[in-house]
Amino acid sequence: MAGETIKTVILDNSGIRRALTRISHELLEKNKGLSDVVLVGIQSGGAYLAREISLCMEIIEGERVPVGSIDITLYRDDFKQQAPHKSVGKTDISFSLEGKRVVLVDDVLFTGRTIRAALDALMDHGRPCCIQLAVLIDRGHRELPIRADFVGRNVPTSLKENVEVIFDDQQQPVEVVLEK
């Protein structure tokens, strides 16, 4: 069995739903409602989750918040001459961020470098009132001074392991798996 990856489901579909519902409640509590709140998901997993969170919040408060998505490829810090550049994904923020309470959404928080890039990208779109971070999974191993405001589940991992949020064809979260 050596060399074979072992996959363990650490959060199933209903677990993800409960986590997203709780994050939505916490988010509303912290921001005292929906006013000036906008969600921006990091492509691609975070963008799908941002939409799910906005639907949860709509059920709770009966109102919709603007949802955008951001691609951080152009802001990465690991451009190497050796590696061919990835294709650039779509950034779609059709509303102004000026003075808004921006909630950045990502699926897995790991080194924090993606979030650093996303913060830079957001700043280029305007000057928000504040930026908060919501993630479904926090797996530790931060390399930058970044923490999440809202966490679905803390999962202690080793660096050899990999955590992945699986989405179906309709971009709905299915489960979270730990590979080792």
């Binding site: 691609d71 152009l74 802001y75 294709s87 990208a121 779109h125």
Partner: peptide, 18 residues
């Protein structure tokens, strides 16, 4: 890639650090 680069050109701050 060019299709997605257009977003940069439509912003107020038309610059990325790439």
């Amino acid at each position: 890639t060019a299709e997605n680069m257009r977003e940069v050109n439509s912003r107020d701050i038309k610059k990325v650090p790439t």
